[in-house]
Design a protein around this nucleic acid. Structure first.
Lengths: 208, 208
DNA sequence: TAGATTGTTAATCGATTAACAATC
DNA sequence: TAGATTGTTAATCGATTAACAATC
């Protein structure tokens, strides 16, 4: 079996890199130590050092990391130093909100086109054009914000057309070949975690 | 130090329960085995059994779990069997999209009011009313979809007014007392993970 | 040199999986 | 009874943390 993520860097770890990047983008200084980063982000100092070691070669004793180079290294590491074309399918409220998501620019994603069954404006294309469009424009990323009932159908079109990464905002677990990556944006799971954590904390407070 | 999540159930585990629930809501049968669930969701059978064991008491050899009871047990376990009041602050595109998020209903969250600096419609309230509103209506959850620059200020209002759970859609790491739970919805991290995974898979394919 | 900070190796911790006994 | 499935105890695996040597 192909092991997708190497170097013992786990999924969870990868989610930390954008956090580092966001932090680094908002500081002024030229150099920074792992301790400073860790303190600011409320993380373990050694963990930060280990993460950074995977993404960059530098890091000098006594002075720390050069902020400018570090940012560039993390960007390269994440593969966001080049532009990737993407489409959004499902141009309801969530699709519209995502269209303006500033993160796309930060991460080198360009929204090439949006698709929806209802042609709401001139810029919105029909799903029947989707497959050809993806192939013609060599799109690699698809963002899925359609109703659950249509999710698998659109997903199949994505796969047939050669898309390799799907950002799935529907609650449906998509059926895809192993070569396609699906990132499930599970808002429901996230919300449920918030509720559960809050309840548990309340319970603990009542107990103590 | 207070240990927030007990019973060796980790954060990651809690995100699986809504997935089980979603799955159970979409099947017809009366009974289901851990093996069936595991196969359908592409998970480990034993993991499913362990998860379910934490949420419910039943589970009968040979027949499996009663779907109806199992759903109820998971709902109780997640604390979504009662309604919680919430407010959304920041009524831009994302805020509007979230307002219609069907998950709120599923998880017993009622959006009591929305706030924005710009009074876009009659229903949108001004942030200066926020604190009093939260106190008067005993709101416990705040959903934060304002620009990053205003995030900490609104967060502080949340805390002062007694909100205990914040769903944070801004990229800012909020500063809160230990008694308040923040669930960061890190879209940027998620997107970056998708890009990274896709790149790695591509690299692996080229290599092999 | 002394002190600060990195990076690596070993230890710990926790989550997942495997093995298996219990039960219908 | 035999077979299927649960639930528990032990083993494995991987991620985080601790300890410490290396370096400026």
């Amino acid at each position: 079996m192909i092991k997708l993520l190497q170097n013992h860097t786990t999924v969870k770890a990868y989610e930390r890199y954008p956090v580092y990047l966001e932090y680094l983008n908002n500081i002024e200084c030229e150099n920074i130590s792992s301790k400073q980063i860790a303190t600011s982000l409320d993380m373990g100092e050694i963990l930060v050092r280990k993460d950074l070691a995977k993404a960059c070669k530098l890091g000098r004793p006594k002075t720390g990391y050069r902020v400018k180079e570090l940012k560039k290294d993390i960007q390269t590491f994440l593969g966001i130093n080049k532009t990737h074309e993407a489409v959004i399918v499902g141009y309801g409220k969530l699709g519209k909100a995502l269209y303006d998501f500033p993160g796309f620019k930060t991460f080198g994603i360009n929204i090439s086109a949006v698709f929806d069954i209802n042609k709401k404006t001139d810029d919105v294309k029909k799903p029947k054009e989707l497959k050809d469009y993806i192939i013609d424009h060599d799109i690699k990323f698809g963002i899925l914000t359609v109703p659950k009932a249509n999710a698998q159908d659109i997903c199949d079109l994505f796969v047939e057309a050669g898309i390799t990464g799907i950002w799935n905002f529907t609650p449906l677990r998509l059926n895809v070949p192993k070569s396609v990556i699906v990132q499930n944006e599970n808002l429901a799971a996230s919300l449920s975690l918030l509720i559960k954590s809050t309840n548990e904390k309340k319970a603990l407070r009542l107990k103590s």
